[in-house]
């Protein structure tokens, strides 16, 4: 007897799945995090795979705790749909689709959050602030464009790759060494922060001696603020303290 053929999802169907994944956090809540959004994102495909009388039972497996990175969620959705398509036709699958999603959401969240939120977003925002501080009015537009170029690729191609590779997509993410990329991006952010600080301080047109003293003071203020913030002092209090200190110092010097 021949192996049953799984239901195929069209390219247009995959694109719509990727678009629905944009709204996965629309009903974010403290009880099940993205659970309802995840279930709704998969709903149209699941409706194609299962008859109405079985659909509620299938959906109840997905309507539970779910939380992963918002940019990689389309890859997980593509892989989940691929496994579910095989399972619905009675094909052998190494792991059930909802179990696969439960297993990969945390590692994908860890990698995706470090890469996009902790690494790439910080770098792009610092770059945009440096440009804006230097007088380039189009810096906010550049921020949006630069951030979304790789994000759109990951979101659109991710669902396609996830669907075609199924459960193996997590191995591809692992082989891409994205955690190492995130680390490099964070170091680049630190370098850029130094540049932003210099751009902000530069322009006072002070004599060399005063400029050196001012620069040393700025670096000292930054390091002192870092120390306080690491000790848990709220940002607003640190900000007010720095403003009062600089004002007092300036008044004394004048």
């Amino acid at each position: 007897m021949s192996e049953p053929v799984p239901v195929a999802v069209s390219k247009w169907g995959l694109l719509r799945l990727a678009l629905r994944c944009l709204f996965v956090q629309s009903s974010w809540n403290y009880r099940q995090f993205q659970g309802l959004g995840w279930c709704v994102a998969l709903l149209p495909e699941l409706r194609e795979f299962y008859p109405s009388d079985k659909l509620a039972a299938v959906l109840s497996k997905y309507l539970r705790y779910f939380n992963t990175n918002t940019f990689f969620v389309s890859s997980v959705a593509g892989a989940t749909i691929a496994i579910e398509a095989k399972h619905s036709q009675g094909c052998d699958v190494p792991i059930e689709a909802h179990q696969y999603a439960d297993a990969v959401m945390a590692p994908v969240a860890a990698v995706g959050d470090a890469l996009f939120w902790g690494g790439y977003r910080s770098l792009i925002c610092c770059f945009a602030v440096a440009l804006a501080a230097y007088g380039f009015w189009w810096a906010p537009i550049l921020l949006v464009v630069l951030f979304n170029l790789p994000v759109v690729v990951v979101r659109i191609c991710g669902v396609w790759i996830g669907y075609n590779h199924g459960a193996a997509v997590i191995g591809m993410v692992q082989r891409a060494h994205l955690a190492d990329v995130a680390l490099v991006l964070k170091r680049a952010t630190v370098v850029l922060l130094g540049a932003v600080c210099a751009v902000l301080v530069h322009g006072a047109h002070l004599p060399l001696g005063w400029a050196m003293a001012t620069n040393a003071l700025v670096v000292a203020i930054v390091l002192a603020a870092v120390f306080c913030l690491r000790k848990g002092v709220p940002t607003a209090i640190v900000l007010c303290t720095v403003i009062v200190s600089v004002t007092t110092l300036s008044k004394l010097l004048m």
Binding site: S122, C126, V129, A133, T189, L193, V196, C197, L200, V218, I221, V222, L223, A225, V226, L229, T235, V238, L239, V242
Partner: peptide, 8 residues
């Protein structure tokens, strides 16, 4: 922004 740099 300098305090923001410190926070980052």
């Amino acid at each position: 922004p300098i305090t923001g740099i410190a926070a980052t």
